[in-house]
């Protein structure tokens, strides 16, 4: 194996943040996506949606300004920016299911060759099943992007031919950012757009159960130290 260095979680978030355009309305899921807002270009305006009922979610409150009544969907204390709004759950899910959000960034356990996603249950009875808004988010938004480690801790591929965990939805993921690569989900299959320095396409394929296609214009995946 050649010498390559995987991105850390914050670097994966940094890379995803570079693809957000001025004016986008986005929802950041639990896990690695929560770091994205730290790396969005401060020159642009991005509106963050949180499914418990707020548009224009701001950063964590300063000491002394915490407010129990101002929480995000992870039940953490947050703030609201100028122009922000509050609304009820039915309207919040109207935004999500009705296609009114521009990009949804999510974590996942598994993504399939066709863009199926499994991110809410590992199908074991020992864990209380909890779906929350995951299914609504991925079905409603036309630009669903997944941020995840390329492999599990015991080195199994998360990019697989068919998801083995209970599905969140079929054929919805458009783009995948991992610690090793940036991959587009296309009608022809999984197209590798960027690879970390020192990792060959063949080596990436060996680490991946799903079949990959190398883009003619594949670039080096780089992120600043975080």
């Amino acid at each position: 194996m050649s010498n390559f260095k995987p991105l850390n979680k914050k670097q994966i978030a940094w890379r995803a943040a570079q693809d957000i355009a001025d004016g986008c309305v986005v929802n950041l899921g639990i896990g690695i996506p929560t770091f994205i807002s730290d790396y969005v270009n401060p020159e642009i305006e991005v509106i963050y949606h949180t499914e418990n009922g707020m548009l224009g979610m701001g950063p964590a409150p300063k000491r002394g300004e915490e407010d129990f009544y101002l929480q995000n969907a992870s039940k953490e204390l947050v703030t609201i920016v100028k122009g922000g709004s509050y609304f009820d759950s039915a309207l919040s899910f109207t935004m999500m299911r009705g296609g009114h959000l521009d990009i949804v960034f999510l974590g996942a356990f598994q993504v399939s060759e066709e863009g199926d996603i499994a991110n809410w249950s590992i199908g074991e009875k020992s864990m209380v099943p909890s779906v929350g808004g995951a299914m609504d988010l991925v079905v409603g938004c036309s630009d669903v992007r997944v941020l995840m480690q390329h492999c599990t801790k015991d080195n199994r591929s998360r990019l697989i031919k068919r998801c083995t965990y209970p599905l969140t939805a079929k054929k919805v993921v458009k783009k995948i950012y991992t610690d090793l690569a940036v991959i587009d989900v296309t009608p022809h299959g999984l197209l590798v757009k960027e690879l970390v320095e020192g990792l060959s396409f063949g080596e990436l394929q060996n680490l991946t159960e799903a079949k990959l296609i190398l883009d003619n214009n594949c670039k080096i995946l780089k992120a600043p130290a975080t």
Binding site: F93, M96, V128, P129, G133, D136
Partner: peptide
């Protein structure tokens, strides 16, 4: 968590948007 594992409660989980709709 505990009640669910001991099967002392019936639990029905619904996607949140479907739940509220």
């Amino acid at each position: 968590d505990d009640l669910y594992k001991k099967e002392l409660i019936e639990l029905e989980v619904i996607p949140q948007g479907t739940f509220i709709e």
